[in-house]
Design a protein around this nucleic acid. Structure first.
Lengths: 205, 205
DNA sequence: ACGACATCTGTCATGCACTGACAGATTCGC
DNA sequence: GCGAATCTGTCAGTGCATGACAGATGTCGT
């Protein structure tokens, strides 16, 4: 479990302490109302040190989301190779979301992140930026799955971008319109619509 | 042309002057290297006034992109009502892009914005945020076109988000991999792939 | 166990983005 | 012209973020 050195373990502890303290303050005072100094103080660390662990105040809020991307990558690797890409991506995402929904400790922070993303423009902004950063990696993995070249063939990038967009729509619908549903179900439905094609005809007059 | 009052015209002039000065400085010194003070000074205005016209330094860079969204809305209204949504959206976007490509003055600023978005994380971040803000309006218009309710039916939101994602992929491919192509053509192809469906099977071993 | 070394941390100083408050200037409606 | 509404500059202040340096702490060889 902890094969790392003392120094490594200490770093990991302060990192987690910073995240916990930040979420605690964010959820009580709100994102913009809490200063980096406050976060650092409640862990008894200088604010200078905070910025040695996180590039910005937003980064500490989106660190959990980054982890989710990594989880999706793992889940995607487990899907059978002959599954169509969107279907594989759909199952991988839904599986990861369900794990967080039923995953005890993380579940509350998971919900907290969603709230921050919706209420704080700066967090939304950083979150979207991180998503596009991860799109390259996701596209690369999709390309491998399709057996095509990830730079000359635009399809993997499209699949990655479109999937990410579907997830964002699902999360947003959950927070704004359908709070009673589970995010995993909404995401599942969004992906299902994508698989079926989306060039809908206009309604008949 | 200028049916507005003196005051309104003056405001419009300083606003445009600020945008021009900002792009001039951004393209020579880079985004993060130019300060708001410099932008304001070169228009002979206090930096406090700058923030009365733009909410942030990033906003002045993305103001042009916002205008493009409005242009797409207009173009979409002109498309025949019986055209399938993705097809209509495709033609509307391509038309707007072509107008900018061949549109003299705007063309250089247009390219400058793309460069800023790619090179400056803060601009990318704000740009993405603005896109999601506009997604609501776009989804609403798509819903009207489809003759469905924009809040209970998730399909309009999906169409909007997916289209936006396709555009982002096209722009990015242009700047990174295919600088010789025209953005409008790349976007056209991306939309074509979406219309055809994207649940690609894996390559045969 | 001890010293040489690498790494981590706090302090200090600095720059820049952004905001509220107030006062003076400009424009507008009459 | 004159009062009212609006715009602008100045000032002061907060918060985020970064570089530089010195001291503290962990690491490793002997």
């Amino acid at each position: 479990m902890d094969g790392a050195s003392l120094r490594e373990r200490k770093k990991q502890r302060t990192r987690e302490a910073l995240i916990d303290a930040a979420f605690e303050l964010f959820s009580t005072k709100g994102f913009e109302a809490t200063t980096v100094d406050e976060i650092a103080e409640s862990v008894e660390v200088s604010s200078r040190t905070f910025f040695r662990y996180f590039g910005s105040k937003e980064d500490v809020a989106t660190s959990l989301q980054l982890q989710q991307f990594l989880d999706v990558y793992s889940a995607l690797d487990e899907r059978p190779a002959d599954e169509p890409v969107m279907t594989a991506l759909r199952r991988a995402c839904v599986q990861v979301l369900r794990a967080y929904e039923e995953g005890g400790t993380d579940a509350t922070q998971f919900a907290c992140v969603m709230e921050l993303v919706q209420k704080s423009p700066a967090v939304l902004s950083r979150s979207l930026e991180m998503c596009t950063e991860q799109l390259d990696e996701l596209a690369r993995r999709v390309a491998v799955r399709m057996g095509v070249d990830p730079v000359s063939d635009p399809r993997p990038k499209l699949v990655a971008a479109v999937s990410s967009a579907a997830l964002q729509v699902a999360v947003r619908a959950w927070r704004e319109d359908e709070p009673d549903e589970k995010v995993s179900d909404l995401a599942d439905r969004a992906f299902a619509l994508l698989e079926a094609g989306i060039n809908y005809p206009a309604a008949r007059a």
